[in-house]
Design a protein around this nucleic acid. Structure first.
Lengths: 236, 236
DNA sequence: CATAGTCGCGACAAGTTTGCGACAGACACG
DNA sequence: CGTGTCTGTCGCAAACTTGTCGCGACTATG
């Protein structure tokens, strides 16, 4: 069951909205001011946040900013002001969606559901990319077994460095999908973020060399990053 | 090119650091005190800030707090004190990273780069989220997958430049809707639209070429701009 | 059917991004 | 301690993208 953090100081509104969300099947955690919101966010790690703009102690924008530092929890902002500038500020600050008071409960629930659905997709992708399922993969004549840390090219064992292995594994898990350098650095290189973009280039260069004739299966997506060429075999 | 706001009152240190950042390919804007920093932050909208802890007129923490009210610019704080408590205070107040004097220039540049990359990553995720990531679009035999950054024409992968991709994506999301050149320049070309109307013409021209026989699905709306033909033609 | 405004398109130049060899520092292993 | 491997950085060349220009063709309008 998904948990929603509801940050709203107006008690009656909070109650109505909270009840509606619970009726929709979510677990609701309520916070009445900004400080409590941050505290609850850290403790409960909610799947999504419904956040009022005007709050006691710490306003909505600041709460949003700080939550963004520790996680990418999707946020639906509520505001009484309907001016375009506010909307822009909110979205620029990283709110995922935006709802102007007064709003219908029906719409709020719908938006929360949409938020959760989208977040779920991204979350799955990211954790899957980072953790890896540990299953052996094949791509044409390339074979990778992450469990045994074994790579083979047409049956012949291939000597891959840890970085090269992780990179190839990530690319092979989603042939056709393009990865930006920033994304690769965050997943393959993890926290050891000392590298620049050229580090990725070189890792790809070395990987291509070791892949021999299959090397050009690793394609450059100009201005974006790299990807595995989508093959007829592994088509989606 | 990314812009870095460097806030440091010690003139010699500022010069050394500034030069190093410029050598790394960034545009550097310098501010020598807290008030100037806030002013420069509002005016230049830098991509990241390197902020000294101790400043004349308005100290680093206060500057940080105020900058946070208007934007999410990532901040790297510099401080002479290396105690853990300071680190905690700085990070809790919203600094994204933290460096203790004395530090190596090399490390500072590396951290700035990491900061920019992280911001870039979050921006990517958020825009992808808002646009509905992973949702592939089809229009006749044209297929666009924004998540994978993959375009295909009748199954054959198509090589689109970033601009062409963004343009086609926008047009395909609202077939039949006409977009003015001004609007296209604002959305597809983003901030850096130094281009004139002819830039749009050419982008469309190149896109049409790559679309081959389907090229005329991109229609000219005379005196207005361009649009996707409301319904794709089905070839026999 | 003349005219002014607009668009298509080839060519070119400038700017940006990537490929790749060379090198050096870090680290593990004997 | 030497030795080898891995990996980040640098620099230049190559590849690619993209804005601009010029001119001819097209469109609406009166």
């Amino acid at each position: 069951m998904a948990t929603i953090l509801l940050v709203e100081d107006a008690r009656d509104l909070a109650q109505v909205v909270g009840r509606e969300l619970e009726a929709a099947g979510y677990r609701v955690v309520h916070a009445a001011d900004g400080v409590a919101a941050l505290e609850a966010h850290g403790r409960e790690r909610p799947d999504a946040v419904v956040l009022d703009w005007m709050l006691p102690r710490l306003d909505g924008l600041e709460v949003l900013r700080r939550m963004r530092q520790s996680a990418v929890t999707p946020v639906l902002m509520l505001t009484a002001r309907g001016e375009e500038t506010d909307r822009v500020v909110g979205l620029e600050l990283g709110a995922d969606d935006y709802l102007t008071k007064p709003f219908s409960l029906r719409e709020l629930v719908a938006r929360v559901r949409a938020l959760l659905r989208r977040a779920e997709l991204i979350r799955q992708q990211l954790t899957a990319d980072r953790e890896g399922a540990g299953e052996a993969l094949t791509y044409g004549i390339v074979r990778l077994d992450p469990g045994a840390h074994l790579a083979a090219l047409d049956g012949d064992p291939m000597d891959l460095s840890p970085t090269e292995f992780a990179l190839l594994y990530l690319l092979m898990r989603s042939p056709g999908r393009a990865f930006s350098r920033a994304y690769l650095l965050d997943t393959v290189w993890r926290e050891a973020y000392i590298g620049g973009d050229r580090s990725v280039d070189n890792a790809v260069l070395r990987l291509r060399k070791k892949l021999g004739q299959v090397g050009d299966a690793v394609e450059t997506v100009w201005g974006v990053g790299y990807r595995m060429r989508p093959t007829p075999v592994v088509r989606s």
